[in-house]
Amino acid sequence: MKRRGRGIACMWYPIGFTVAANPSAAVVKINEDGTATLLTGTVETGQGSLTILAQIVAEELGIATDDVHVVSADTDTTPMDTGAIASRTTYVTGNAARLAAEKAKGILFEVAAPLLQVKADQLEVCDRKIQVKGFPQRHIDIGDVADRARGVNGQPPIGSATFNPATVALDPETGQGKPFATYVYATQIAEVDVDDETGEVEVLRIVASHDCGTPINPMLVEGQVEGGISMGVGFALEEEILFDASGRQVNSNLTNYIMPTSLDMPEVVVEIVDSYDPTGPFGAKGVGEPTCVSTAAAILNAIHDAVGVRVTSLPATAEKVYAGIKAKRAQEAKQITAG
């Protein structure tokens, strides 16, 4: 018989390690046609980092995301980056990109201020224009200012910046300190059906509620969460590298190293908890790895809720779940006889 259960798991995850140098650098060049070029050492692997970085630069400069040309991961041209690792790109590289854009923008403001007859700090950017705060009708096109900055003022609008979350040594005796710049939080709830005659677990639904600071691109955040959950489902129920006595992997192909297919994946509901981290670019933190932290715990709690069995080693294969159910029944039968 199928038994339904629900389980919940919460987590926090650190973003921007501080125990060692963790820098990212960026260069932003504002072009005479009002577009911008960003140089970054980070790598796009499909998670959408370069889109996020372009959005950050666009937001800082008041231009469109499509106006930002991103040059990435080329040792000939781009600054070195600590890496597209540790869920750090939006936070660390994003901060570097925003700071570089801010510097380039500062040059434009210096050039535009006398033309608009105000001080530089009275200016803001909006819709590809530099305008006077509170008087948007007094404005100049960013491209025209960039052209003038180079051609008249002799100062091309180029900014470069580094962001390195302040390195804090851990206490050598207690191992305590401030190992990360910021943290993200999440809760996931899993609903499962467990067949108590076979031990087979079907995940029906996962609701995932994630804080990543301000979501710069909610669609990409959802993509990360959905992908992380598929890894979590695999971790919980299917995936395991098996070795023989001599240390050779015995399940080295995808017929026996099992990972979730479209039929194994439940309905996934993603909820983004909008928050704001003042140390992140426009309030953003990160979202990569944290997405698969709670999934297995939530599923295993749901299995416990369904059939009262605690599986303590992953993956919770049907065999293990069924063994747990059998052991529990034997225990109960013993108690009845004893009673």
Binding site: G46, E222, G223, E226, G227, G228, I229, S230, M231, L254, M259, P260, T261, S262, L263, M265, V268
Partner: peptide, 20 residues
Amino acid sequence: EIRDALAGNLCRCTGYSKMI
């Protein structure tokens, strides 16, 4: 039916949601 049609295509990144 969509899940069934994609069952032979493994994806490590997306969890299939946005494809569906």
